[in-house]
Write a protein that binds this DNA or RNA. Structure first.
Lengths: 139, 139
DNA sequence: ATTGCAGCTGCGAATTGTTGCATCTACATA
DNA sequence: TATGTAGATGCAACAATTCGCAGCTGCAAT
């Protein structure tokens, strides 16, 4: 499992630069207990390094996403949330009635992925998905 | 298969009103060849009935979605698209390299739905999903 | 240590979609 | 046919995210 140094190396190797802003944003995502929004990252970073711009936060998250260092999930509450890939791939079942979220291991989606690959030759890139529906309690 | 009259009846039965705006918006979705965005619906409606407001379009689509008359799909290009339910449930495989879209029958997702129901008691509400990945050609 | 410059940042404006509220209207009832 | 009112609309403000651009900076090569 990679640590912060490895991630910074990965950036350098691909021709990207290490900047204080990027380090802080990366730390914010890594330190977060759960999925964290761009706004929350912004607040976190500003606390120690004022004058960071929210658009830099968005741009850095975009970059980290491309490098597959973070994943993005839309929980349907009007803002997208981010999560370090170090904490593993998983999916979320979002109950549209009570708002509860159930975490689901990636393995549940393996048959679907195989089926799409076999029937359509399509390699699905589903690392972090939010599926909406109704949970056991609310049925 | 329901026609426009049936849909309008369904609205009335549930205590919703039939307004010119709603009729026009409904027609726009029904007439659309493919998935249509809110913006496109707005342009279509404005052409014959000016002074409709874009927020009415969004609110009407929200309503039609709740009544399960249209489905909403996020193709990841920054805008959500809508589709009449009359044209059947299906899903989309979006290639992140060439941008191509493969339509997939809903049945492919049945095992996943059963698995989520069996293991977690969660009734997944997946009628129209866009799955990202790499298609056969671009592999 | 200096320099060159591609890549990065901050800022402000634009874009896309949502919400609050005052006004209006479809339609059930009288 | 007239009326009351819950539901619908238009408008403008708001929120989340993206974009253009001028100036700044990390870092590789001197």
């Amino acid at each position: 499992m990679s640590n912060k140094g490895d991630i910074l190396n990965k950036l350098t190797q691909q021709g990207y630069r290490i900047t204080p802003q990027r380090i802080m944003i990366l730390e914010a995502v890594e330190d977060a207990e759960n999925h964290i929004s761009a706004e929350e990252i912004y607040i976190f970073v500003c606390a120690r390094y004022p004058n960071v711009n929210i658009s830099t936060v968005y741009r850095t998250l975009e970059l980290l996403k491309e490098l597959e260092l973070v994943t993005e999930t839309d929980f349907g509450d009007g803002r997208v949330r981010y999560h370090s890939i170090k904490k593993g791939h998983h999916h979320h079942l979002v109950c549209q009635k009570c708002g509860g979220i159930i975490d689901v291991d990636e393995s549940v989606f393996a048959p679907l992925r195989e089926s799409l690959s076999g029937k359509y030759g399509f390699e699905a890139d589903i690392h972090h998905l939010a599926i909406f529906g109704t949970c056991k309690k609310c049925k």
